[in-house]
Computed example of a mutant assay.
Amino acid sequence: MRDFRDAKAMAQTLTEALAAKSVSLSHSESLELIARILGFRDWNVLAAKVQASQHATAPTASPVAIPPGLTELPIFPMRDLVLFPQTVAPIFVARDKTRRAVERAIAGGSRVLVVAQKHADDDRPNALQSLHPVGVTASVINSQTQMDGVLKVTVSGLQRTAITRLIDGEFLAAEIKPIEEQRGQSEEARSLSRMVLDAYRIYANIDLSSLPVGQRVRFGLPSPENPTLLADTVAQRLPIGIDEKQQLLETSDVVARLEKVLELIRTARPEQ
């Protein structure tokens, strides 16, 4: 089954399928469209994710979110973002402490903890009560300083992680504890995944009828055979508030998370 690593092939298939319908779409336009279908902001972000996967030392294995023995990570506190596992996102860093956290992460294995602040206007979220208790261990894919001096960091979410203690020094760090998923491969989770997938397609008005039959139904979304990934992918895409996304992130029971996602889809206003 295709995934984000097959983005270029997907774009080529889309271009050819639309051409057969006398619809002209350049390859670069197809790449941008595929990136959005897969839940990425644009092709540049997706390309970084693809490149990172190609450079992995063991490409067929799942990434290790927290290497053995590592119990402390630099923190990236987010004002308006809840990062989910298996999601790539750009982060724009202006605060000095977070810049130093980036430097430490890059120098020490590129692992960080991305966690949402409880209050977006808090400029010094350096206490446990200032941050949500659960974030996501992430890998720093790349970083670059923009013309305005803001540091842009692209991260890839890996695993739900709880904060057990904050360490406030030159940069904010935390002692951490990985959170294990429950019922992620149960038959109930797979059944709910199929319901979520169908409901989201209707909600988002996904219509790829011009594509070959074998690709049109679930193109661009994870398989219902991977309930954990599907729940997080849809949760990241839904236009809901930070608090609602944080609740989904903190729900380690995959069946319960899928039920919440399904309810949010059913009560949300369809996209226009």
Rank of each mutant, 00 (worst) to 15 (best):
L211T: 04
L211K: 05
L211Q: 06
L211N: 02
L211V: 10
L211H: 07
L211R: 03
L211C: 04
L211E: 04
L211W: 04
P212N: 10
V213S: 14
V213L: 13
V213W: 03
V213C: 01
V213A: 15
V213G: 01
G214N: 12
G214H: 13
G214F: 13
G214D: 15
G214W: 06
G214M: 09
G214Q: 15
Q215E: 15
Q215T: 10
Q215M: 15
Q215C: 01
Q215V: 06
R216N: 04
R216M: 13
R216S: 14
R216T: 07
R216Y: 05
R216F: 07
V217F: 13
V217C: 00
V217L: 13
V217G: 00
R218H: 14
R218L: 02
R218E: 14
F219R: 06
F219T: 05
F219Q: 11
F219P: 05
F219N: 07
F219K: 07
F219S: 04
G220N: 02
G220W: 03
G220K: 09
G220A: 11
G220T: 03
G220C: 05
L221Q: 14
L221S: 14
L221C: 09
L221F: 15
L221Y: 11
P222G: 09
P222T: 09
P222N: 11
P222L: 11
P222V: 07
S223C: 10
P224G: 11
P224H: 09
P224L: 02
P224S: 07
E225A: 13
E225H: 13
N226W: 08
N226C: 01
N226A: 12
N226Y: 10
N226G: 00
N226R: 13
N226V: 10
P227M: 04
P227L: 06
P227C: 04
P227D: 12
T228S: 12
T228D: 01
L229D: 09
L229Y: 08
L229P: 00
L230T: 05
L230H: 02
L230G: 09
L230Y: 03
L230A: 10
A231H: 07
A231F: 02
D232N: 14
D232K: 02
D232R: 12
D232M: 13
D232P: 01
D232G: 00
T233C: 11
T233S: 14
T233K: 13
T233R: 15
T233W: 13
V234C: 10
V234M: 05
V234Y: 10
A235I: 04
A235H: 07
A235E: 00
A235L: 09
Q236F: 15
Q236P: 00
R237P: 01
R237G: 03
R237K: 15
L238M: 12
L238A: 05
L238D: 01
P239W: 03
P239I: 06
P239S: 03
P239A: 04
P239E: 08
I240N: 04
I240K: 05
I240A: 09
G241M: 01
G241H: 07
G241W: 02
G241L: 01
G241F: 06
G241I: 03
I242C: 00
I242D: 03
I242G: 00
D243P: 00
D243K: 13
D243T: 14
D243S: 14
E244I: 05
E244K: 11
E244A: 15
E244M: 09
E244G: 00
K245W: 08
K245N: 09
K245M: 05
Q246Y: 03
Q246W: 04
Q246I: 01
